[in-house]
Design a protein around this nucleic acid. Sequence first.
DNA 1: CGAGTTTGACCAGCGC
DNA 2: GCGCTGGTCAAACTCG
Length: 261
Amino acid sequence: MENVGVGMQFSDLGQTSDLTAERCTVGFMDLLGVHQGISRNTLIHPPPMQFPATATPPNSSYEAVTGEEKKRGYGESIEKEHKRNKRLGEQTKARVPKVSFITKSQINNLDDGYKWRKYGQKPVRNSPFPRNYYRCTTYRCDVKKRVERSFSDPSNIITTYEGQHTHPTPLIMSNRSSFVSNGSASRSHFGLPRLPPQLHHRQQQHQLSLFGKQEKGFGHDDDHVMNKSRTHQGLLDGAGLVKDHGLLQDVVSSHIIKEEH
DNA sequence: CGAGTTTGACCAGCGC
DNA sequence: GCGCTGGTCAAACTCG
């Protein structure tokens, strides 16, 4: 598992301080109110699922850009976006929570437990990879996300979520027994990516590594699924909710690079 | 047939 | 004013 160092700048109410990646992770978890069942080695989960559907996002803003990205101009684009958002924010007085993070993955469209509908695609300046625009398909939920592949490191997926879900994740809404008792429960119930066959095995191994070493040694795919189900039960709290909010599976290595409100 | 994707067109904001 | 760019729309298309 890769754990790229993150040079993070955390600014909250005017205070700015440098944080290590570890501190950053913990801090983010604090912000999200997630403390239990996550080891320090656990990678950051995609944020939108961290926010309870009705919760107010953390009242702070920070940005974290990997040194590499900053060197190569990504930080600059964020600055521009900051300016733009500031402008728009001043105009509208209704700034939407916006969270960006980098995910290391071979696939573009990670299944984070929500249903997304693609509504646009644009070529990115100075990048061979297009930017994709998605919108939550749930009725009256206006959350959007942008997904683009990092030009500096094509294995990095830059995802930006905008807004807050007005509903629980489908993962949470689903009946616990339906996927605990049924080994063939759909991947979406677990928030697992529906992978193309050629990527399936690789990604699955990647994901399994997130659940601990006890997963090693299960060679058969069905065993993978079944044991993954069991492992997931370990991630379920008493109410049948997933402690990792259904995201852990999606993140091979992700780093929050920005959040703003 | 419904849901999702693709893709060209359109619009607004910004910089020059 | 004009061109560029990011974001969105919507018709056509694909897929299950």
